[in-house]
Computed example of a mutant assay.
Amino acid sequence: MKLNKPLMALALAGLALNAHAHRPWMVPSSTMVEAKDPWVTVDAAVSEGLFDIDHQPLKLDALEITGPDGARVQPENVITGRLRSVFDVKLAKPGTYKAAIVAKSVLASYKVDGEIKRWRGTEEAFAKAIPADAKEVTTTRTLSRMETFFSAASTSEAVFKPTGVGLEFVPVSHPNDMRTGDKATWRFLIDGKPAANLAFSLVPGGVRYRGVLGEIRQSTDAKGEISFALPAPGMYFLSTSWPAPAAAAAGQAPEQPARRLAYSATVEVLPQ
């Protein structure tokens, strides 16, 4: 299978509900900045231990930062090291910013001369990559979205406007204004419509020090929403995917869906 590193890193987002998978993530130095000259530094990596810098850097080719006014913001001082990537964001305007990496890919399986072949790549490359004499061609199209949020001086809502494409997080409770013990309400959408009965995972950082994962699992209601009391303060990894994995028939590989969506984000719960 041909799989380049940027696609590999983002394909892992679809495995986020697996406690043992390598996770890609972005962690800002602060989610709420009060300063005369506000900046945020973001660490970005793929790691086995949640928020530990222990595996490889996250590729930032598809990174997009959106400011409170909807305009694109250019990252500064971008560095990719051996184990992590780092970038700075100048928060020139008050309000909430979003850092996002969105990836689309196609996973294909086909037969040539009776031999099964597999391929993964971009939509643009797909048509040229599959031989003209290929038979029994099946495809799974994946859309992965990874985000984190940070605000300067005050919070705002513009960056949460949904695109209507894929699996999206549209919080009712602002993710930069969540405190321990408060009740938060989150909403998830699939192609702009409520994502009902969607299971998601919330894992607090610091797993290496606790010795246990500490995972919280919840599912949305018919409106695609969930309301729950916020746990202890700290950085959390939120992840979900759709559809739910299909059960495999005895002796057979599980059937692959024609489309797979994934979402992950880093959010912070502040102390009361």
Rank of each mutant, 00 (worst) to 15 (best):
P243T: 14
L17M: 08
S241V: 02
A196V: 09
H20D: 09
V33D: 07
K128L: 03
D177C: 03
N77H: 09
N197F: 10
W25S: 08
K36C: 06
V46Q: 10
V203A: 13
W242H: 11
M235H: 14
E147R: 01
H22C: 11
M146I: 15
T163I: 05
S219Y: 08
A229P: 00
A44E: 11
L107I: 14
G251T: 13
I79S: 07
P68W: 10
S47F: 12
W186Y: 12
A44W: 10
T31Q: 03
T266G: 09
Y209S: 03
G166Y: 07
F169H: 05
E48F: 07
D177R: 13
G205K: 08
F228E: 07
P194Q: 06
G205P: 03
L58A: 01
G192W: 04
A19N: 09
A13Y: 04
F87S: 00
D113Y: 01
F228M: 13
K98P: 01
S144P: 07
S29G: 15
V40E: 06
R259Y: 07
V102H: 01
I116A: 10
A45W: 02
G192N: 08
L230G: 04
K135P: 01
Y110Q: 02
Y209W: 10
S241T: 08
P245K: 10
Y110N: 00
T148K: 04
G251I: 15
P38L: 13
K223H: 00
T80H: 00
H22E: 12
K117R: 07
A222K: 14
D88G: 00
V106K: 04
V112P: 02
V78F: 02
E268Y: 03
K111N: 03
A103N: 07
W25E: 05
V170G: 02
G205M: 13
V137L: 14
F237A: 01
S241E: 08
V78E: 01
E124V: 12
T163N: 06
D191I: 05
W186F: 14
G206C: 13
I130L: 08
L202D: 01
A246W: 06
P245V: 09
S201V: 07
E157C: 00
F126K: 11
T266F: 12
A152G: 06
A199L: 14
S219I: 11
A158H: 04
F188P: 06
I79W: 13
A199K: 15
T140N: 05
G206Q: 14
Q74N: 00
R118H: 03
R187K: 15
D113Q: 10
A125Y: 08
A246Y: 07
S29D: 08
E76K: 15
K2W: 02
R210A: 05
N77P: 00
A250R: 11
D69N: 15
D69H: 08
A244R: 14
P204K: 14
T220N: 05
L202H: 01
A158F: 06
A153M: 11
I130R: 08
M146L: 15
P68Y: 11
N176Q: 08
E115Q: 15
G224F: 12
A13W: 04
P254V: 09
Y97N: 03
E215V: 15
V172F: 00
K161Q: 12
P28W: 05
L12S: 01
K223F: 02
S151Y: 05
P57F: 09
R260D: 01
F169L: 04
R82A: 03
D182K: 10
P271Y: 05
G164L: 10
P162E: 03
A247H: 06
S173H: 05
D54G: 09
W119I: 09
P245E: 10
T240L: 14
M32P: 00
